[in-house]
Design a protein around this nucleic acid. Structure first.
Lengths: 216, 216
DNA sequence: AGTAACCGGAACAGCATAGTTCGTGTTGCC
DNA sequence: GGCAACACGAACTATGCTGTTCCGGTTACT
């Protein structure tokens, strides 16, 4: 249903078909990226941003947007897919082996901004897409942090007297809060990774451990 | 502008005036409370809940709702005012003297649900009310936690190597996260106060201090 | 150079919501 | 008991949004 597949039967300007499967003119490819970029920014600011707002921000006409994305839900799904792919790429490139505390600090440093962007898009998606679709992508993100917390607990570095699910929630809520404070000018973006890591590791440290230090 | 003042010039059923300033019939008072109750619940679930949804949940007609609240913004403002008053009442009743860690734990225990409810209403209000109005009520809530954190830092119990504003944000983000997890069934509501306090106090503890324990 | 792919403003239909008016009935206060 | 305060469904206007159609112009690919 997304622009990448283009096999949508009855659609406006349905005669528009690429010469080959998936093939497109350069201006069409440029517009699709511009629309996705604009949608990501607009939806992060306001989950109810209109299709007209997004088209304007992308510098294209509404009919052009509808030419590439059949419905608002199609567009939101495409943005969600792209956001997940971007998050996966960054997270795949992050070393999560070795000392759990240091691994978590690296993961936090690499992903705090993406995690927040992801959540903004997710909120918009929740209004348009089925709950299963939302859960599928949400769980993939959670899983990585959970794996490190599991390792940390087994190694005795992280506390195990609180629900594990809550520790994961704590990690995400601190990243989201930092992203919001940073966007609002209340927190220096350059300092955010350190601030989140110090706070999170202090919160997660096994009681009595000397892990609760000023800098990781 | 809210139902309490009733001096709104040209309004539907403008002939409806209480016998005395602010005086109302019993059924009108009951309906106003029902509308505010319903608005608080509906807006907490969905900041875009319609006036028709709220009226239905309150068990009144839309015209009746408009008879008491001139516009949607008037209603949202009234809900915000009431929510702030409720939060003030609970927070005023909480002992914030003595040991900063224990004071913060008490404050958290008393307010985690209210703080979340307050934020939900605040999100709805942000779409309807001027930014100054939002900031005025928001800062009042933040101030109480900030005062305790100040005391804790002076007493050496809380860390001072992270921005103070961030420590306040941490407290609020953990309360919000716990409320969301509780609402979603991922956290036992009866255990939430303990879980938040333990996590928060561990995060705030001055490095090296023995405050990072399992139970406050 | 030719032409299909692509673009996009105008206009339309349908839907949802906010706010208003009308008219009639009910309630509760004096 | 009387009557003003209160209630409320139906119907209306206005606005904004989604999605579609039309049609003429532009771009870019061969």
């Amino acid at each position: 249903m997304a622009a990448t597949s283009r096999d949508t039967g009855d659609r406006p300007r349905s005669a528009q078909r690429p010469a080959a499967q998936g093939e497109r003119r350069a201006d069409a490819r440029r517009n699709i990226q511009a629309i996705l970029d604009a949608a990501q920014l607009c939806l992060a600011r306001d989950a109810d941003a209109s299709v007209a707002d997004i088209a304007k921000a992308a510098g294209v006409g509404r009919v052009t947007l509808y030419g590439h994305f059949g419905t608002r839900a199609d567009l939101v799904d495409a943005v969600l897919t792209r956001t997940v792919e971007q998050a996966d790429a960054v997270l795949d490139a992050t070393d999560t082996t070795g000392d759990p505390s240091q691994a978590l600090a690296r993961l936090v440093g690499a992903s705090w901004q993406i995690v927040h962007q992801f959540r903004s898009v997710l909120q918009a998606a929740q209004r348009e897409l089925p709950a299963e679709r939302i859960r599928a992508v949400h769980d993939r993100i959670l899983h990585r942090v959970q794996t490190i917390i599991d390792r940390g607990q087994r190694a005795g570095a992280f506390r195990d007297d609180l629900p594990k699910r809550w520790l994961v929630t704590t990690a995400f809520s601190l990243m989201h809060a930092a992203a919001e404070d940073s966007a609002a000018g209340r927190l220096d973006a350059d300092d955010a990774a350190r601030v989140i890591s110090v706070t999170l590791l202090a919160a997660l440290a096994a009681p009595g451990a000397a892990a609760a230090t000023s800098t990781p």
